[in-house]
């Protein structure tokens, strides 16, 4: 099964589970969790089910296109279910079966992994799902988001699309994957990985990016001050990404790191608080 078939199959599976099928957000994110469909969707009491692909940028994970599995940008398939149905683990496993994975022939383990995002002020309890020793999904019961204790809780399922494709296509390198039957992952992504790795590790203009970080943080706060939480959140996301670039560039010391993260967290918390004050129904 090629990568785009996997995506279509997951869309199809989750739409039958009552999920809205949405799209990646158009601001850089480090994970599907940062997409407003998850960040705001998990807040408040209203039921919410959604599925979407999220290209996830992790500048420090860049390897100039030289590592078979570590990527500066990978693709997540993100599902959120609020509240989670009691049989959510079984539903998830069925989704793998429908991708053509005969679970009875493999080794499937739910390995403890309590996810947390210090920048989003979020944490949850759950697992990494391992198939034959390869981590293919992060499975989390969110307990808190944006510093707000969630009631009801949500389940987030984050499939690593490249990892699943490696398993299904029995390949060892991501670049050997078929995106569709004609185009390989390498054709689409290798040069981008190489260029962005050089940019993130060596070329990014440190002072300009620090300045941008400051401007975005300011814009976020100014928007929050007038009750515009969605524009504010976009700028919080930009801050998060710019911080990741600075981090990859190696210019953030241990102590600065803490204060950068705390600043972003405060912005995220402000957005969550503002969103709940407006009342989620308006959203």
């Amino acid at each position: 099964m090629n990568v785009q078939e996997i995506i279509l199959q997951l869309h199809n599976f989750w739409r039958h589970q009552g999920c809205l099928i949405l799209h990646p957000y158009d601001v850089e994110t480090g994970a599907g969790t940062f997409n407003p469909a998850t960040f705001f969707g998990t807040l408040g009491p209203s039921p919410w089910r959604v599925g979407y692909v999220e290209p996830s940028r992790r500048p420090t994970d860049g390897r100039y296109g030289e590592n078979p599995i570590r990527l500066r940008l990978h693709h997540q398939y993100q599902t959120v279910l609020k509240p989670p149905p009691a049989g959510i683990q079984e539903i998830y496993l069925t989704s793998l079966e429908e991708l053509g994975l005969k679970l009875a022939e493999h080794d499937v383990k739910f390995a403890e992994d309590d996810w947390e995002s210090p920048t989003l002020g979020a944490w949850g309890a759950g697992w990494q799902v391992w198939v034959d020793g390869m981590e293919i999904t992060q499975f989390t019961y969110f307990q808190q988001m944006g510093g707000v204790t969630l009631d009801p809780v949500s389940v987030e399922l984050t499939y690593g699309l490249e990892r699943i494709a490696l398993l299904l296509q029995e390949k060892e390198s991501t670049y050997g994957l078929q995106w569709n039957d004609e185009v390989t992952y390498k054709t689409l992504w290798w040069e981008k990985e190489r260029q962005f790795s050089i940019y993130n590790f060596e070329a990014a203009g440190v002072e300009r990016i620090q300045e941008m970080f400051g401007l975005c943080a300011e814009e976020c706060r100014a928007s929050l001050a007038v009750g515009l939480v969605f524009p504010a959140y976009d700028y919080a996301l930009k801050c998060s990404h710019l911080f990741n670039v600075l981090d990859a560039r190696g210019v953030i010391s241990v102590t600065e790191r803490e204060s950068f993260i705390a600043r972003i967290r405060d912005l995220a918390k402000g957005c969550a608080k503002g969103y709940l004050e407006i009342g989620e129904n308006v959203a």
Partner: peptide, 24 residues
């Protein structure tokens, strides 16, 4: 976790992961 890996599918998967990790 389960029955014996009669077809060697799990073994092949384990070895593939080990190869990728060792390259790292």
């Amino acid at each position: 976790d389960g029955l014996r890996d009669e077809k060697g599918i799990v073994r092949a998967g384990f070895e593939r992961v080990v190869r990728a990790r060792l390259r790292d």
